[in-house]
Design a protein around this nucleic acid. Structure first.
Lengths: 139, 139
DNA sequence: TTGAGTGCAAAGGATTTGCAGGTTC
DNA sequence: GAACCTGCAAATCCTTTGCACTCAA
């Protein structure tokens, strides 16, 4: 796998985030002009098969990506309204995956996502729809 | 909410399955001619908001639905190759959702899905792609 | 009767693919 | 120099929407 400008920028962008990010947003962080959306899709797919990033999902099924850090797995709540993510203090035991291995499954992984309506979206009749996509939260 | 033919058929179809099913497959089980795909989408959405069904996701992000039985929550592995689902013996503590409630989140739910390559797909170079979608194997 | 529900067609959004040209090793 | 990557355009897949018609209550 070659080291190219888009890939370096993408890793940097992923590194800057503290949680799962949408591809759309990554595109914005990297710079719309400096890299095509398609390239981001392709790089993330490559990164994923290398185990470098992990995929999770928004409530509507669209993907989010995050760097696979060495510090253990982290889970997140994602707001059904604005899409904002927030880490959840929780960890999964290995029992389940272990039992699957015993059953003969390979390439085992899992997705655990919590959903809910965040406090900020609670009262606002008009939810902050684009929040999850907004770049640099302006201040 | 009215009781209509498509809805009854849909509930029956869901009932027959033991795990999460794709919309595509539900359409086939219900009968392609007897009900439009769009209607299935709409009914499932309605059922979901009533808490009658629960949604989960395939490895590629497409939705699966299953009836919300009274017998507690069940999780599944879904094969990355053929899409077949298999129940996993595992249960999640309520701690995580409870802590979210404390943080001010509402309408809390979660999705937990295990992925892997099932024993059957292990050796077969050409995976049973359509297995998860296949309806009553046309005798 | 009448409004919720349905089917059909078409739109929409996310993701993937094909291909020619550019870049890394 | 060759293979890999990228950008652009277009295709695909899943899901949603608009609208006129139908049917359950």
């Amino acid at each position: 796998m070659r080291v190219t400008k888009p890939r370096v920028a993408l890793v940097e962008a992923l590194f800057k985030q503290e949680g799962p990010v949408s591809i759309e947003r990554l595109h914005q962080v990297v710079g719309i002009k400096s890299c095509d959306l398609v390239t981001i899709y392709r790089c993330l797919a490559a990164f994923e098969s290398l185990g470098l990033v992990r995929r999770s999902y928004l409530h509507n099924g669209t993907c989010l990506y995050e760097l696979t850090t060495g510090h253990g797995r982290r889970y997140h709540v994602v707001c059904k309204e604005c899409g904002r993510t927030d880490p959840v203090d929780f960890s999964l035991t290995n029992d389940a995956e272990e039992s699957l291995r015993h059953k003969g499954y390979t390439q085992i992984s899992h997705v655990l996502e919590f959903f809910g309506v965040c406090p900020a979206c609670q009262q606002s009749a008009a939810p902050h729809r684009e929040q999850s996509v907004a770049v640099t939260p302006v201040t």
